[in-house]
């Protein structure tokens, strides 16, 4: 059974864009600004080192704020073959606010065909959220970060 260890160092990944904004000299004053205009909102993304392709399937549109949800995550190899029996981790946060998810989502079931059920997804405020999906299998460990713009 794949498991999420939400307090793994990966949980701090959302700090990365925050640090970048800080370095850029915008700092906390940028907080209530709208998300970057060129934000890629695609829910299908290749992982950073090209090992996998991940797809988030929230199952509802628009994604609600304030409601705990179960999502499906689909993972394939770069040539489109479903990735089965992988370990998945999900973390998230708000880069402009410097905080993580209000919950600790977990992968609770492998649905078959490279699809996995993720429970405990929740967003407690509108705005720009990032979701980082980490995937580990025999091919290696790789991650992808997705953008969501909720209630805006």
């Amino acid at each position: 059974m794949p498991k999420s260890k939400s307090k793994s160092p990966l949980r701090l990944l959302w700090l990365l864009p925050v640090a970048l904004i800080g370095v850029g000299g915008i700092g906390f004053a940028a907080m209530m600004q709208p998300p970057p205009a060129d934000l890629d909102l695609s829910l299908t993304r290749a992982t950073e080192n090209g090992l996998y392709v991940g797809t988030l399937e929230p199952g509802v549109s628009p994604i609600p704020v304030g409601t705990i949800q179960a999502w499906t995550v689909a993972v394939t190899t770069p040539d489109g073959k479903p990735l089965e029996h992988a370990d998945l981790w999900i973390v998230g946060g708000m880069p402009q606010h410097g905080h993580g998810l209000p919950t600790e989502p977990q992968v609770t079931e492998e649905l078959g065909g490279g699809r996995y059920r993720v429970e405990g997804m929740k967003f407690n405020m509108p705005g720009w959220w990032t979701i980082t999906l980490k995937v580990s299998s025999a091919a290696g460990t790789d991650s992808a970060t997705f953008n969501l713009n909720l209630g805006g």
């Binding site: 939400s6 307090k7 705990i68 179960a70 905080h99 993580g100 998810l101 209000p102 919950t103 600790e104 989502p105 977990q106 429970e119 405990g120 929740k122």
Partner: peptide, 13 residues
């Protein structure tokens, strides 16, 4: 009981 099961349990925040 999703809220309890997936509760954010720890962290400085």
């Amino acid at each position: 009981c999703a809220e309890l099961r997936y509760m954010d349990r720890e962290g400085e925040d």
